[in-house]
Amino acid sequence: MAMIEAQNVTKMLNGRTILNGVSFEVEEGDIFGFVGPNGAGKTTTIRIILGLLKPTSGRALVFGKELGDSDDLRRRIGVLLENDGLYERLSAYENLNYYAQLYSVSDIKEKIKNLLEFIGLSDRQNDKVGTFSKGMKRRLALARSIIHDPYILLYDAPSAGLDPEAQKLVRDLILRLSGEKGRTIFLNSHHLDEVQRVCSRIAILQKGEIRAYDTVKSLRRKFSKPAVEITLTDNREVKRALDLLNSLDYVSECERDGLRITAITKGEKTSMVLSALMKISIQVEEVKTVTKSMEEIYLNVVRQSEGII
C-alpha cells in the first residue's frame, strides 16, 4: 500500500484550475521530491494531502484514507510548512512542550531535551522564539515536526533560508529518518541539489500538471544525453581531436571550450572515445563521463512542456 497517494487530483479555486489530474504514489520509506516553479501548485497539493483543502475531483490518500477530519491519522503525520508554526512569545522549550502535549507525547521532558541537543539549541531553550534567527527558527520547527515520532513527514521547503551547515543538518535528518526509521517523507522543494541528494523519487509539477515522475536515476536516463568530457594537454591538437570526434558515428555533437571538448554520444561510449583519441596519438589530460544535474533535467522538463525546446 502506498503511504501517500494522489489519484487524479484536480483543484479549482475561484474559477482557476490550480491542479489538473495530478497522480502519484509515495511508497513506505521513500523520500519523494516534489519540485516545480513558483505557482505550479505544490503548496496546494500538500494542503490537499493534509486535508486542509478538498480536491474538486480525485482523491488524496494518506495510509489509504482521506485525511479529512481524522484526528488519529493526523497524529501519525509530521508537518513543516512554509511557516515554522512557532509562537514567538513562547520559548523554544514551551513551543515544543505545547506541540508535544497536542500530540499526547509521553516522556516529554526527555524528548525535548534530546531534540534541542540534536538541533543545537539546548542553551537557548528558555529564550523566546521571537529572538531567534530565521535558521534557528527553522531548526526548531524541524524538531517540532518530529516530536511525536511521525510515520509520514510532509516538508514544504524545509531548508529555505538556512545556512549551508543547517541545510546539511536538514539533509542528514531526512536521510536518517528514512534510512534508520523507515519514515516516508514528502519533500516540497526548490532546492534541486537537496532533492538530488536525498530523494529516491521525484515529480516535477508545472502549471498544475505533473510533467515528469520517476526515480532520480530514470529521470537522468530519460532526460540527459550521455556525454564525454575530454580535456587535452595541447591547444594545437584541439582541431585534430574535433575532426576525429565529428567523424565517429556514435558521436552526435561536439562542443569546445578552450582545451575542453564535450562530445554528446549515442550511449555510454567513454572508453571508445578515449581509445579513438589515443589511436591517433592525441595527448589527453582527463576524460570523464558527464551526467546532467537535477537542475538541468528540471529546466529541460519545464522548457519542454512550455514548448521552448
Partner: peptide, 15 residues
Amino acid sequence: QEKIIETMLCTPLSL
C-alpha cells in the same frame, strides 16, 4: 496572517 494556523490545523486537534 502569520500562517501559524496552518500548522495548528494539521495537529490532531479538531477545528
